[in-house]
Nucleic acid binder design. Structure first.
Lengths: 338, 338
DNA sequence: ATGAAAGCGCTAACAG
DNA sequence: CTGTTAGCGCTTTCAT
């Protein structure tokens, strides 16, 4: 393998018979360069196959043109059959692509990787950092923000940090309220819930919404906790059934868990929706094809990604009107499971 | 937001009352530093919250400690319900994580993004580049390799490039042969195939394997081409049925397409496997739960990712014995669809 | 064992 | 419009 020395600005300048500064101007598209010289430089660039060294450039500009998306989850979780992460990534990716920024995707599901990611961001590898799927009160967003690194979160940060951080979230309460109303309206009275993990805002808020709605209706709550995975949905449903065999409806805080619940109900010999009505949360494509098709609260995940990316682009471009918080609407989609 | 100046080596040196060189030694774990001084430096680092500037470091070391995985596909394809990409990424991610290298995932599904990715890699942003899901005879791997950048591909490069590039692939032929043998052994004689895209090695090799196997058995071929998506599987199956309503088996070059074919067969009123036997290729988890469960050729996708990453780590570490080509075995997994 | 000094390749004033 | 010059923050000889 012939390892040609990478040509430098210097080399191009010599070949074109100009100064380094002029080459730099041409390469960066400055308009104040004579056409003849510009052509000569471009030709030299072409002939030498010159590509600017990003490290050198970043060192002086303090810019990298790339932006990180940090997911505090393991890679096997992010790249599983859960369609939440892909949807966020698609949204982020679309906006960044349009802005010609490079997306750097980072999983931080272990203490070690969390550390590595922290060093990576602090080392100035990226111009900004986006977070999704946050657990607990992760200090990292705040730390980075305090260092002057632009940070945006998807999902309201759990403990309002010292340094306020822009975020995008969906209307969990509104969605849950619609779901419970629907169940109430169709005559259900023993309404249980399979909640999401209680170290995540999405898990907490949806459970609060459920509690509030049942309280308002003067009904007793039946709660089991899952972690948004299908398997946890199965387990939670089994548990709910064991505790109250007569329950007639269940609001599940994610579609994945709802699919698990559907399976558990089938295995327990319950018909859906005749014996037990089921409502999920997400509205993934596959939920239209489950058996029976899932009634669910639609949340615009791709839009969350897009919105978060736009906030980020606003920050790195020093735009003045970057919204501090945007809350996207949710909407009940009725299919035959409830 | 208080934007503290990022502390530099210089600042740490001043605070610890030593030279920059010494701080650098401590930060990089050199053993030749007196304990007292080392402690003083570490304390200064701690107090100042010093993190080395990666651009400056890369500029002199010519190293970034991060490695790219380039997928010449759109983000919506990579992050869809197709489980191939996630599996590759999981494998790569696991190995890189263990080696404490940062994975930079890049989609290059459009001409513009392909360009951007090329510049990114050439600009020395990463120490090496891995490719997966390559289409046609992409010149990029060769170009990068010629620049001296370590490159590894998953999937044998289509046209043997001038610069040979290490790769990992699976035994497409062996897998297909087993599938067709199984069909033959269970009495099937009108065996069709839904092939993958013919600009990809996986698509080409599996079709060649099918042709070879049917030729050897003296049977006629029935071919429809898909693009590995579920929808293309539906369309291809419809077409196959239209061309030969009496076919009794179909070998499908991917599980996703096989799921589409299953659906198309059901819609056409055919029973599987009684009327038409179906065999897929991949062995995704969900294929165990399809209706009926899918007989399929298992290929070790996660292992491909791992292997590719190990080859890459070997290259960047100048290890002498990096295998030029590794071919992983495939294996027929019999379930009730055939 | 530690420090001084020379760059790595590039951009950005500042002159001219 | 173009060239000169001075760094960006770090590592790494080479002396001491």
């Amino acid at each position: 393998m012939v390892v040609r020395e990478r040509p430098t600005l210097e080399a191009v300048a010599r070949r074109a018979g100009v100064s380094r500064a002029t080459v730099s101007r041409v390469v960066n598209g400055s308009t104040t360069v004579a056409v003849a010289i510009r052509d000569a430089v471009n030709q030299a660039v072409e002939e030498l196959g010159y590509v600017p060294n990003q490290a050198a450039r970043s060192l002086v500009t303090q810019r990298t043109e790339s932006i990180a998306l940090i997911l505090p989850e393991t890679a096997s979780r992010v790249f599983s059959d859960d369609l939440f992460f892909p949807a966020v990534i698609r949204g982020v990716s679309a906006e960044l692509e349009a802005a010609d920024k490079q997306l750097v995707l980072m999983m931080a599901g272990s203490a070690a990787s969390h550390d590595r990611v922290e060093r990576y961001a602090m080392a100035g590898h990226v111009d900004g950092v986006m977070f999704a799927s946050m657990h607990g009160a992760d200090p990292l967003p705040g730390s980075l923000a305090r260092l002057g690194i632009p940070v945006v979160c998807s999902g309201r940060p759990m403990s309002p940090p010292v340094t306020p951080i822009p975020y995008v979230d969906v209307d969990h309460f509104g969605g849950v309220a619609q779901a419970v109303q629907h169940l109430l309206g169709t005559g259900h009275r023993r309404i249980a819930t399979i909640a999401g993990p209680q170290d995540m805002v999405a898990g907490i808020d949806r459970l609060s919404g459920y509690r509030a709605a049942l309280d308002a209706a003067g009904l007793a709550t039946h709660i089991a906790i899952g972690d948004f995975t299908r398997e946890s949905g199965v387990r939670a449903m089994d548990q709910l059934l064991a505790n109250d065999p007569a329950l007639d409806a269940v609001f599940v805080a994610s579609d994945m868990m709802a699919h698990g619940a559907l399976q558990a109900l089938k295995d327990a010999g319950r018909r859906v929706p005749e014996d037990v009505a089921v409502i999920g949360f997400d509205d993934f494509e596959i939920s239209r094809y489950s058996d029976p098709p899932l009634t669910t609260v639609r949340q615009p995940i791709v839009d969350m990604g897009r919105t978060m990316a736009r906030q980020m682009l606003g920050l790195v471009n020093d735009e003045p009107d970057v919204p501090q918080a945007v809350v996207l609407p949710t909407e009940l989609v009725v299919r035959s499971s409830a």
